[in-house]
Design a protein around this nucleic acid. Structure first.
Lengths: 118, 118
DNA sequence: TTTATATTTGAGCATATGTTCAGATATTCT
DNA sequence: AGAATATCTGAACATATGCTCAAATATAAA
């Protein structure tokens, strides 16, 4: 029942299952995007930013105060969230107000939170 | 309108918003758990494992073949997923069959995927 | 135009992460 | 008991991540 003539040197016990998994697997590019999205939510600082912005829009220095990190750190994280289109900003004079682009991240966080709280 | 007498040296433009965010913030421990959960989904290898197990249970060497990594790498990742109670296993002889503990991760992945596909 | 404020950017650094390798466990079959 | 198989574990290493500092931009007010 063992097969070893695969691309990789791995043993394969259930060849059908491996084949089945390969067939139904997402495209590399989709996996990559999925993992980037979850990675954005995987850091406590970014998670706090996102949850804070659920309430109301905030500027960089307010977020820095709230998070107790430098404004630079916040700015770096906001750039990442911006590149993934998770947050957007609007300028009012010299101040940039950040807000969530849509409710996706909120829904993900909510779903995860419910599970954590059992 | 500027205040500088905060714990951290940060400027605060909108003190009410910072206070509001602090008040509604989750507990440190919940933030930590949330981020760990998302971190589990943030790696392409783990994501592929989870999506593969949505179809049917698989053993370590099958997963290794599917992922084209060593069985050791799979085992390390499965341990992490096990510790977060995202996967469970059942032993049948010398073989351990892994499966998803519940549908949470599937729901999270599904929700995220819908968004990525617009 | 000069000055001050709000944010961004890039470099540098310490820590975290994911993988492989080698060797340890655990279970089954002789 | 001894051999074979399936999985796990710890060390080592290369890369990724997140932060701070210092300096650059951008907008507004004097």
């Amino acid at each position: 029942m063992k097969k070893s003539e695969d691309l990789c040197q791995c043993r394969i016990i259930h060849e059908e299952r491996v084949a089945g998994a390969r067939q139904k697997a997402l495209e590399v590019h989709e996996i990559e995007e999925l993992s980037q999205l979850f990675k954005a939510l995987a850091d406590p600082t970014r998670l706090k930013i996102i949850l804070a912005l659920e309430q109301e829009e905030m500027c960089v220095c307010d977020l820095a105060a709230f998070l107790a990190v430098t404004e630079s750190a916040v700015s770096h994280q906001l750039r990442l969230l911006r590149q993934l289109h998770l947050v957007t900003n609007r300028r009012q004079g010299p101040i940039l107000y950040y807000r969530l682009t849509d409710c996706l991240v909120s829904r993900l966080a909510q779903l995860a939170l419910e599970h954590i709280r059992e």
